[in-house]
Structures are given as structure tokens and as C-alpha cells.
Design a protein around this nucleic acid. Structure first.
Lengths: 334, 334
DNA sequence: CTCTTATTTGTAAACGATTACAATAAGTTT
DNA sequence: AAACTTATTGTAATCGTTTACAAATAAGAG
């Protein structure tokens, strides 16, 4: 593991000159540059990133903080972020908060201690307590969930409109009694619920409190909520869930009750997954442009690293409605 | 962002003393220790990890290099590794190779440049070209795929035996003409194929070349291979795939051909996923102890960091057969 | 050929921690 | 009280870079 000193000695120059060659500085005579490059090659020299970071007060690492990387949405995001980061010579550190603000806060501090260039964050709550208490000292881009009153770059989905379109699709196909199982505690679940209610109203229907559930965005909670909805005296004709985990739970509940989709109950959701098109019938859903979200977030982040004072942006991407069998036109039978 | 110098000044001591307090050295008078701790608290001092790493020639970061984090197996592993790393105060950098040895090699070099403490690697090939060319300079634990002649810690599945049990289960349930779609280029796919063939032989059957396919371990390849198998003049009664992506592809092919599981063709695979129990019928499979694999790999890694000269270990974990509907006892009809 | 200016190179000081080593202070023995 | 230990603290070097600044060299002008 040769250091810059040994390269300098081998090339008969000072470390400053080696550093200049490395940085492609114009102020190096071609002859010297050649000698240095030769020494670098011969010694298989690679600059020590730690030393460089210490001096530069900045690493080429970025952090990704999400609730759980196993949520397919975040898995896809992480892949996109890693690809984009890699292209720009950055490494990616991933962190799982499990929706725990304390863990979020700890990780944000770890990121600061590690001198990351920036962090892409899916916040545990809409207040960004963790962000506020820290004058972060690094760039931040928020994804998936908004922090309404924070002046920070964000990449979000058009949640209200996507939910509106998804619900309208059900209505157009003849479903009327539509239940919604929404992720609690995030702006995302709230906004999607709003879109759902707006669509109902646009069709002259009154949202019923009985049919709207806010639960932790996890399989078990989706299962429990769906089960209770299906056990209602007057069960819903369709179920809308706001993410793939809730959908998986709902599907489980539907199977358990021995109901057929969509004849007995339709099912629509957010987030494309491997399984959504594999189950029979395949699931109608709003596909988020996960790769684009991750890519855009990374780009915004690195732009801010380069230009910290730039005005913040809020990028809203459109969800795409994929119509499949789970919401086929309703056949009235009785 | 206070540095150790400012803490030292505030407490009226030298930086050495502050450092000793930080390291819990016994040689500090209680009175001084108190003063230092007070200064640390007041200045909200947090040690700079970069500086610490430069001096220690070692970071508290570990790398995870896999083919694609979106493969649910690796997603689960990454979560386990991150959890275990977090507990020990380490951060996790993830890298995707897409099965490309060049990318693997580049990432290994990046890991070295970044001075990671160690790397958990699912190698692209059985020769570890990337590892060899590098005298790594960091601890390495190999997972999922073996590097037969390398003296390195490994955490693997009992592939041969698991595949044997999976195949035997099919045989016991009356299936005879069983096809295997195996991931190519890894020891894992090969070993699982071996177990499959051993089981056949144990039942007096001769493995047929026609029924064994080695393909890239991806959905599309699984789809294509399954389709061709199902189009055979004498199609198989059961399909065994060696990972969840191949299974997803195979399932797609089965659906497309309008076949019923398990009546027309049974399907069994490796790797538990969200969807395997959601599809109808649910899929029989060998569940890998993903969390344990990740946890064990991290433990081995940190043990080696602490004690570099320790003899290498090879931990083999057992897969668990989960019997579900996709391999129900065969009903002969004609 | 000298003087001025532009270019190239080197010296040395950071960056923020840790840690040999030396120096000092505090106890223990005689 | 002197001579040892032993415990505590500080000084300064070090890790591997980058980069002001100074120094040296080369080029250009008269």
C-alpha cells in the first residue's frame, strides 16, 4: 500500500507535485507528469480516501435512511440510488429506522460523525425532529414522505392525484362501497386517503369513517385491518391499500375468508412488486417510478453538495395506473 | 462542530487527556475526568470518525457486495447485516455487481480505498479473481457461494442436502419426471443440481440432460427455460428452481401456458419470499435462514477484524423445507 | 545581458484524532 | 527526609492527503 510520499520519492518530486498530477492541475510540466504517472503505475498507488476526506472535510459517501430496506419500494429506491452514486464515484451507506424517530436521530448523527456528503431520507415523521435538532452539516434530500414546512429538497409522488385515479378506476368499474387501508403517521398515507375521498365525493359518495383505517404500514396490520373490514355486517366491495405490505396482508385476509377477487371483493394498491403480477388475478395498482425517484434524489443531493446555497426544489413525480385483473368491471349478482 | 482541541481548552487539559477520557483509560483522575465530560457535554462534542480512522488505519464501516440487492434473498441478508453491524457501531456500504466480475473487482478496490474494516462478499465466480489480485488488506467473509480453494471465512447453505430433501419430497409425493432450472456460474446452482440428481438416483431414476437447465439466475431466464421445458413433447410433471427469481419466471410461464399447479405441473424452489405464500397454491420451498446467515457473516467478520490470524471457518447452515400446496401429492389421471 | 513577469516546483501547515515517550506529581519505603 | 515507585498529565509525532505561500526556474522585453 504505497502512499503519496513513496510515489513522490520514486518520481523524484514533492508530494505536492504528485497531488497536482492527481488533481489534473495544469501547472505541471509534461515531463514531470509522465514521471509521476509512471511511478503511480509501478507502485500501484491508490490515494487514501480517508486522508483525502479528512483534509477536504467531506467524504464521497452518501447515506440512505429508510424505515426498512425490505419494503420493496425502498429496495428499488436503494438500487437506483446506489447506481447513480456509483456513477459519480460515491458509496452508499444504508440505514433502517423501523419507523423509530430515535433510530432516525441516531443515524443522522452517525452520518454527521462520518462526514457524509449528504443523506437521502424517508423521514419517520412529518416534523423532521431529527433533522431540526441537528444543523446537519450535510446535504439532505427527503423522499417518499413530505416534511411540509421544511426548506429542503424533496422527491415525492403525486399522492393525492394517484389515489384519486386509482379510486376513480374502481368507481368507473362499478365499485361503490370502497374501503381504504392507509399507512398511518406519514403524509403519504394521509394524502392518498385524501385522493380516495375526493374521488368518492366526485362520484357523489360520502366517505364513511367505518371504511377508512389508518394502521402501521406493515403486513400484519394490513391483514388485521382487512379482516375486520371483511367481517363488517355490510362488507366493502373493494379494498384500496396504500402500499404493497398492506396489500399483502389484505390479500392474505381475503384468502383466509375464502373470498374471490374481484367477484367478492376487488383489491387495488400502491407499489409494483414481483408478486403483484404473479398472483391470480394480478393486482391493479399505482406504480411509482422508483428508479427515477432514486436517481432524481441522488442528482438533487449531489447538486446541493456542489452548490449548497441553491434554492430548494420539490420534485413531484407521477404515479402510473396499471390496470389488471383484481379490479375487473363489477358484475352485479343480486 | 467542536473538535477535541476546543474540548481540551474548555476543560483546561491537553488533547491527550480528552482522548484518554474518551477511551475510558484508567489513568485519569476522577476530578479531571469530570471536567472533561462536562466540556464534552457543553460543547456537544462528537469525535470525528474520519480523523480517528486515519490514525487507526481502519474505519468502522463494512461493505456488502452482492449481485443485486433486489433479489429478496440479498435484501433479507442486507437487513440482517445492517442490524448486526449497527449493534457493534459499524456502518454498512452496499454494492451491486450484477454478476459482473469487473464491477466486483472495482468495488473491492473501492472498499480498500475506503479502508473498510471488512467485506461480506457473494462472489461473482468460484475463483475469486477479484480477491486474489488484491491482497485485500481487509477482512473478508464469503456468503451464499463458495470459493472452493480459498482460505477465507464462509457462511453457506447445505445446498446439496437441501436440494436432495426438496427433490425427495417431490418423489415421495409421486412426481417422477422432475425438471431443474439452476442458476449458472455459481457453486450454489451446481450443488443444488447435484442434490437433485442424487435424490433421483436414490429413487432409481436417471437424471436426464434434457430436464436440467443452467441459466442466468433471473426472472426472464427462468421464464424462458420453464417455457421451453413445458413445450417438450413429454413435459415434466414438476419444476424445481434454485432461487426465487427463477421461480417467479417459471410461475409466469406456467400461467401463460394455462397450466394448473400442482395438477398439471408442480413447482418447488429455494428462498422464501412475500409472494411464495400469497400465490394460490402457495409454493413449497427450502427456506434459507437469511437472518442467521447475515448475522453469522457479520460476527465472523468482526471476529476476524479483532483477530486477523485466527483460523478460517466455514459455517454451513441448514435449509428448512416448507411444504405447501404447490407440491401436493400427485393424483394420477390416466 | 539584465530586469521583469509568468510559470513551475517545493516547503510546510493544516485536517482531528491517538499514543509513545518524557515529565511531573503523588505515594511508599526505608 | 531521602530515595524509590507508581499514577497522572502533557508534548509532539503520526496517519495520508491538499494547498497557501515562498522559492526557484524559465520566458519575454528592452
Amino acid at each position: 500500500m504505497a502512499s503519496i510520499k513513496e510515489v513522490a520519492r520514486a518520481a523524484g518530486v514533492s508530494t505536492a507535485t504528485v497531488s497536482r498530477v492527481l488533481a489534473n492541475s495544469p501547472h505541471v510540466r509534461p515531463a514531470l507528469r509522465e514521471r509521476v504517472l509512471k511511478a503511480i503505475k509501478e507502485l500501484e498507488y491508490r490515494p487514501n480516501l480517508i486522508a483525502r476526506s479528512l483534509r477536504a472535510q467531506q467524504t464521497t459517501t452518501i447515506g440512505l435512511i429508510v424505515s426498512d430496506i425490505r419494503n420493496p419500494f425502498f429496495t428499488a429506491i436503494s438500487r437506483a440510488v446506489e447506481d447513480s452514486a456509483y456513477e459519480e464515484g460515491y458509496s452508499l451507506i444504508v440505514c433502517n429506522t423501523d419507523e423509530d424517530p430515535k433510530k432516525e436521530s441516531i443515524y443522522l448523527n452517525v452520518m454527521r460523525d462520518a462526514n457524509v456528503a449528504g443523506v437521502i431520507l424517508s423521514p419517520t415523521g412529518p416534523t423532521a425532529a431529527g433533522l431540526r435538532e441537528l444543523e446537519t452539516g450535510f446535504a439532505v434530500v427527503v423522499i417518499d414522505r413530505s416534511i411540509p414546512d421544511a426548506d429542503v429538497d424533496m422527491v415525492l409522488l403525486d399522492n393525492v392525484d394517484s389515489a384519486y385515479r386509482l379510486t376513480r378506476h374502481l368507481l368507473e368499474n362499478g365499485y361503490r362501497r370502497i374501503a381504504a387501508i392507509c399507512g398511518e403517521r406519514s403524509t403519504t398515507g394521509r394524502e392518498r386517503c385524501t385522493g380516495y375521498e375526493q374521488a368518492l365525493r366526485a362520484y357523489g359518495l360520502l366517505p364513511s369513517a367505518e371504511l377508512v383505517r389508518f394502521v402501521p404500514p406493515q403486513i400484519e396490520a394490513g391483514y388485521a385491518a382487512a379482516l375486520r373490514l371483511l367481517e363488517l355486517p355490510e362488507p366493502p366491495e373493494a379494498l384500496l391499500t396504500t402500499n404493497s405490505l398492506l396489500a399483502a396482508g389484505a390479500l392474505e385476509a381475503i384468502h383466509e375468508r375464502g373470498l374471490r377477487i374481484p367477484d367478492d371483493v376487488a383489491l387495488v394498491t400502491f407499489d409494483e412488486t414481483t408478486w403483484a403480477s404473479l398472483v391470480q388475478p394480478p393486482i391493479t395498482l399505482i406504480e411509482q417510478p422508483t428508479y427515477e425517484i432514486g436517481k432524481t434524489a441522488t442528482e438533487l443531493l449531489l447538486q446541493r453538495v456542489a452548490e449548497p446555497e441553491r434554492a430548494t426544489r420539490r420534485v413531484i413525480l407521477k404515479g402510473r395506473l396499471l390496470v389488471r385483473g383484481s379490479s375487473a368491471p363489477r358484475v352485479h349478482c343480486g
